[in-house]
Each structure stands twice: as structure tokens, then as C-alpha cells.
Computed example of a mutant assay.
Amino acid sequence: MAASSGIYQAAVPGIEAVNTVGCGDAMMAGFAIGLKNHWDPSEILRYARALAAANARQERTGYFVKEEFEELYDEILVQKL
């Protein structure tokens, strides 16, 4: 992710993807939420990546389990390049 403060990269833990349809939409929703709330770029990226990964774990499109999202969020490492 590129921001005025620099470039950020997220390392997402390996997951078993069941359905990747809607992952891009979930990630963009995460970006939109973070931008609306004026979060730090690293927080925005972590949130967006966790939403996308949680979505990929589900068979249903555009759906995620809150507990899985929270688990993934805690495991994602963001670094400024």
C-alpha cells in the first residue's frame, strides 16, 4: 500500500482458501472503512487484508466469520518499506 507516509507491505499467514470470489471487494471495503475513520496506513492495510483472507476461508461469497477475522488480524504483520 502506498501512502504519503511511505509504502507498506502486509504478510498474511497461510490459509486454506475455499472461495476467493469477493476477496477483492472485501479488501476494498476494509480500505474504505480505514480511510473513512482516518486510521494509520498500517492499520488500514492490516484490516483490509484480514477481511479478504477471512472471506477466502468461507464457501459463501462475501461472507466472513468475525472470530476468524479477528484471529487473522492479530497474525498479519505489516512493515513499512
Rank of each mutant, 00 (worst) to 15 (best):
V12A: 01
R60S: 03
K36W: 07
S4P: 09
S5C: 11
G30N: 10
Y73M: 05
Q79G: 12
W39K: 10
N37G: 05
R49T: 13
A26C: 07
E68P: 03
D74Q: 15
T61E: 14
S42F: 00
Y8E: 06
E59I: 10
L72Q: 03
A52E: 00
G6P: 10
G34I: 10
A53H: 01
Q58S: 04
K66C: 03
L81I: 10
V21Q: 13
P41N: 10
F69Q: 08
V78H: 01
G6K: 12
R60P: 00
E68D: 15
A56G: 04
G24A: 07
I76M: 02
G14R: 13
A54S: 13
E43T: 13
R57V: 05
L72E: 05
Y63K: 04
V21W: 04
P41W: 14
K66S: 04
I44A: 04
G34H: 11
T20G: 06
D40R: 15
A50F: 00
N19F: 10
P13W: 08
L35Q: 13
A3C: 09
K80D: 11
A2P: 03
S42K: 10
G6M: 06
S42D: 11
E68A: 08
A48C: 05
D74Y: 01
Q79N: 13
C23H: 11
I76F: 02
G14P: 05
V12F: 01
A52C: 03
E67T: 08
Q9D: 10
L81E: 13
E70I: 02
A53L: 04
V78K: 00
I33R: 14
E43K: 13
E67M: 01
Q79H: 15
G14E: 15
Y8C: 08
V12R: 03
P41M: 09
R57H: 09
P13Q: 05
G24H: 08
T20H: 08
A48K: 06
Y63E: 06
A26T: 09
A26I: 01
A32L: 12
A54P: 04
G34S: 10
M27G: 02
L81H: 14
V65F: 05
Q58R: 07
W39T: 04
G14A: 14
M28W: 00
D40A: 13
G30K: 12
V18S: 03
G62L: 07
R46D: 02
F31V: 15
I15G: 07
E70S: 08
G22N: 06
G24M: 04
T20R: 13
L77E: 13
G24T: 07
L81G: 12
C23Q: 11
D25G: 03
Y73R: 14
A11D: 15
Y63N: 00
